[in-house]
């Protein structure tokens, strides 16, 4: 193992939503690390808790959602309990964010130049002219053609793909060490998707920025991420190097998930199908949350909740990989 300390460390994170009918646990006991320059993919179906985890890290959990337990550390310092003003400075400066819909992340009333320079001036102690030059530099960096002419345009004058590039430029303003990208390509067409993915990859490589890439698209993860965490019903089902998780998944849920993705060149009459649906947060079964849909379930799965354990090259939360093994 290397001795580089992780850039981001999430330990036993638990996110709750108090409701009239009791407390909903949306994210339950999640631990993960992101190393400098690494791309960690987080996949899962809608409601698995992947976006909430991302929102918690940048301190943008919408009330009544709250962090009920656990801690989040950036370069060793806790950031989950900071007062609003302090967190605001970290957000943008140390952690950037890219969201799904580029139109809602940009202010329609300001030109791209105004938005970029404002963000740069907020985070860096430089004069207006320098900020201006940096704004242009950023637009060139994210691959906007004729950046010098387009910098004075408003967001609506850009196409979807170009807008997402502007959002990425905004996220990069203060040269953050970590970017949380929540479904950054979902709203885009496939050929544009590929452009944005390779842009993100290049920026990571060149600037050493780490990325937490939250998406439901396994294809995007397979191409972009170094490691991937698969989430199910608020917990991590499996985490490991992307190649191993995709090619040789260990958790029965991951296996089912991979089999259910149609692939070009794969001639099968029927796709592997996981019967049933992910349980609602109010109805998470005891034991392993996946057990009612699992084909490899045995007695213990219905009683005890599995933690992540070594399963060869990945770590899976599944009793099948329990060394002490009472498989009964």
């Amino acid at each position: 193992m290397t001795s580089i300390p992780p850039l981001l460390e999430v330990r036993n994170l638990r996110i709750e939503f108090p409701t009239r009918h009791g407390t909903l646990v949306a994210v339950d006991d999640i631990s993960l690390q992101i190393n400098p320059g690494e791309v960690l993919g987080v996949v899962g179906e809608s409601g698995a808790g992947k976006s909430l985890t991302g929102a918690a890290i940048i301190g943008l959990l919408e009330p009544p959602g709250r962090i009920a337990a656990g801690e989040i550390r950036l370069e060793g310092n806790r950031i989950d309990n900071l007062p609003y003003e302090k967190m605001r400075r970290i957000r943008g400066r140390s952690i950037g964010a890219i969201f799904q819909d580029p139109l809602t992340s940009l202010n329609p009333l300001y030109t791209v130049r105004e938005q970029l320079t404002e963000t740069i001036l907020t985070h860096e102690d430089i004069n207006k002219a320098k900020a201006d030059a940096r704004a242009l530099e950023l637009l060139v960096e994210v691959g906007i053609p004729a950046a010098a002419e387009r910098i004075d345009s408003y967001p609506h004058q850009f196409s979807g793909g170009m807008r997402q590039r502007v959002v990425i430029a905004l996220a990069l303003c203060a040269r953050p060490k970590l970017i949380i990208a929540d479904e950054p390509t979902t709203a885009l067409d496939v050929s544009i998707q590929a452009q944005i993915i390779s842009l993100l990859k290049r920026l990571c490589r060149e600037n050493g920025t780490a990325v937490m890439l939250v998406t439901h698209d396994m294809g995007v993860i397979a191409e972009t991420a170094d490691r991937v965490a698969v989430m199910y019903a608020g917990r991590i089902a499996e985490i490991g190097p992307v190649r191993d998780v995709v090619k040789n998944p260990k958790h029965p849920y991951t296996k089912g998930l991979m089999g259910s993705i149609p692939m070009i060149g794969e001639d099968v009459e029927n796709l592997t199908q996981i019967d049933g649906t992910m349980p609602r947060l109010t109805e998470i079964p005891p034991g392993c949350a996946f057990n009612p849909r699992c084909t490899e379930r045995f007695g213990r799965c219905e009683r005890d909740r599995p933690d992540l354990m070594d399963a060869g090259s990945t770590r899976a939360a599944c009793w099948l990989y329990d060394r002490e093994g009472d498989h009964g």
Binding site: M162, S191, I192, A194, Q195, E223, T224, V246, M258
Partner: peptide, 20 residues
């Protein structure tokens, strides 16, 4: 060429410029 695909892990791609 541009579809993100499970088989693409670790491969580099050459994105195509331009938009519709």
């Amino acid at each position: 060429d541009t579809i993100p695909d499970l088989g693409m892990t670790g491969r580099e791609r050459s994105p195509v410029a331009g938009e519709v």
